[in-house]
Amino acid sequence: MLRRKFLASLGAIGASFAALPAFALNESSASNLITRLVTDINKVIASGKSERSMYGDFERIFQRYSDTSYIAAYAMGVDARRASSAQKRAFSDAFQGYIAKKYGSRFREFIGGRLEVTGVKKVKKWYEVSCVAYLRGQSPFEVTFHVSNRSGKDLFFNMFIEGVNLLLTERTEIGAIIDRNGGDIDKMIADLRAMT
């Protein structure tokens, strides 16, 4: 079955979700973004609020630091070609709530832990920010963010936990929900809303 360290890392997938003004993207601004993101997440975890109100906080963090329209478009995959603008908007909205709930509900596993930025490098037109996650009682593991200024702002558009990335994982999931609904995009959006 799956390994301990890997499972710990998946649990912490929640530990993800900083927007700078539109300066030119470089190594220090990319790693600044992630440092601010991590600081914000740690604040929410340490606040001791109820889980419900934490989801709202995480949703706002996700909106602020991540390239939400890109992540949503990628997750929908080829099905986006036949979606109407109204469906795309509704999907983006439902998807953000779904992500906040899905990953936010597991932040509990991250309480008492921390994420440290360890390095940054340029890859083609984007930057890769490496972090190490330290969770209580677990061996440290790698978390990587990809940051771009595609949207005009520095935002992260993908995250990897021990090699498992958010975009591919969510495309698989959204694709499966569309299949389950016989290809009906509206029903898929309704399913996402029901999950939040």
Binding site: F6, D67, T68, S69, Y70, A72, A73, Y74, M76, A80, A83, S85, K88, R89, F91, S92, V123, K124, K125, W126, H146, S148, R150, F157, N158, F160, E162, G163, V164, N165, L167, L168, T169
Partner: peptide, 26 residues
């Protein structure tokens, strides 16, 4: 994904180019 990462293989995910997708409407 995790197994390829453990073996130090480049994963297709690391090459996802954010400039290559039309995000109009999202």
């Amino acid at each position: 994904q995790n197994r390829r990462f453990e073996l130090g293989q480049e994963d297709a995910g690391s090459e996802i180019d954010p400039f290559e997708l039309d995000t109009g409407g999202f």
